[in-house]
Simulated scan of single mutants.
Amino acid sequence: MSPKSRLYTLVKAWKNKPFHEVRDVSGEPWLGLSSAALEEHQSWSKRQAISNEPIFNQQGTKLSGALFRPLLSSDDTQLLRMFMEGLDNISYWYRSGRFIPGILPLPAHAIASSKFVDGLSDLVLNSRLPVGLVSIGVHQYDKPECINSSKEGLLRLRRLGILVHLLNFSGSTAQMHVFTEIEPDGVHIDISQLRNTHNLIELNTLSKQIKSEIYACNITLVKDIENAIAIGASHSYGGLMMPPVSRHQMLHISDSRIAKAIFSLHPHKNQNGDM
């Protein structure tokens, strides 16, 4: 058989071969991808999910952290897996040369479980991340029994160098009790509740008693930035600052551009002291 006829036979056999189409979970076709390549692509796509909310210092001149939002809506069976994904994001930034602290939200009742804390401890130790890069954001802590039963778990996590934040802090009597009991490293205040002047005055007075760093969250209006400054917030985040981004996009956030955008939104003094 001549080379020409052999090539003809191969092409004809390939043309007549039944067509097999590879589809992803949603049913969309991925032509030409093997199952291994498809799995790798889906894994890559998952890592690019818009799940990290950037946190900036109050002047907007520095990216000071990121809140991993998927953990806020995870049920108890998903918490460890999502916590591991949040740790993976922080490790990715660290390996890329960016020291971006990550805040991983967890409900208070989960930290009350010693087995759950065992799992968290193993994940943190295996990540080998420097102290100070991992924080947990405690939420759903309004019931006194929740925080009392989780104090031991919080102590164990702190021994590993994990920082503790209180999310959704409003200064209520129950929350102030929790604040006194665990002495968090940071408290996150929903700045939208300060659009009421009475609330602003109350929280402004309260902020002077708080030794922890104050994070102003849910900033969506220019007035919110002014209120955050009024209560002495050290950090701010929300839609007006920057909406959530993927872990890869987080690496390319330009601090100087953010600062320029923030300060263009409200009056500020020039070098001569004029507005």
Rank of each mutant, 00 (worst) to 15 (best):
R81S: 13
R95E: 03
S150K: 06
E85K: 13
P101K: 09
H188P: 00
L31V: 10
I162S: 00
S35D: 15
M176C: 13
H266A: 00
D88Y: 07
S96F: 07
D75P: 00
V117R: 05
V117K: 02
H188R: 14
I189K: 05
Q42D: 09
Q59C: 08
P70A: 14
P18D: 10
F169Y: 08
M241Y: 11
G132W: 10
S256A: 04
L133Q: 10
Y141C: 05
V187Q: 00
L240R: 00
P107I: 08
V164C: 08
A110C: 14
S212A: 11
H235P: 00
L167M: 13
I231G: 02
P3F: 10
L71D: 06
K223Q: 15
G153P: 06
A49K: 12
M250A: 06
E226K: 04
G171A: 13
L155N: 00
H198C: 03
T197V: 15
N218S: 11
Q58N: 13
F56S: 05
I111K: 02
G186N: 04
R6D: 11
S207K: 04
I231T: 04
Q59M: 11
S264Q: 10
M242K: 13
F179A: 01
E152R: 13
A230Q: 10
M84S: 09
H266G: 01
S91M: 12
G273S: 03
S121E: 12
M241H: 05
S64V: 01
I189Q: 02
D274L: 15
S5Y: 02
I191D: 03
I147C: 12
P130Y: 14
N204A: 12
Y237G: 05
D75Y: 13
S121Q: 09
M82P: 07
R47M: 10
I136C: 00
D76Y: 08
L106S: 01
E85N: 14
S64I: 01
S91G: 15
W30Q: 01
D75Q: 08
R6V: 11
S91P: 09
L167Q: 05
S246Q: 08
D76Q: 05
W93L: 09
A261G: 15
L203N: 07
G232E: 03
M241Q: 09
L160I: 14
L31F: 14
I189C: 04
L221A: 12
L155M: 01
L194W: 05
E145T: 06
I50N: 06
G27E: 14
D88H: 13
L166G: 02
L155S: 01
E181N: 13
G65L: 11
S172K: 11
N227A: 15
D190V: 01
C146L: 12
K4N: 09
H188L: 07
S74V: 10
T180D: 10
M1H: 15
Q58W: 04
S64F: 01
A216W: 01
L265A: 03
P130H: 11
L125H: 14
A66G: 08
S254I: 13
G161H: 15
I90G: 05
S170W: 00
E145Q: 08
L157Y: 02
S256F: 02
L31R: 12
Y141A: 07
D76N: 06
P29Q: 08
D122T: 05
E152I: 10
P105T: 11
Q193T: 07
P184A: 04
V25Y: 14
I111R: 12
K17R: 12
F19C: 00
L167H: 07
Q193R: 11
S236W: 12
H248E: 15
G137Q: 03
I258S: 06
L133W: 04
T61N: 07
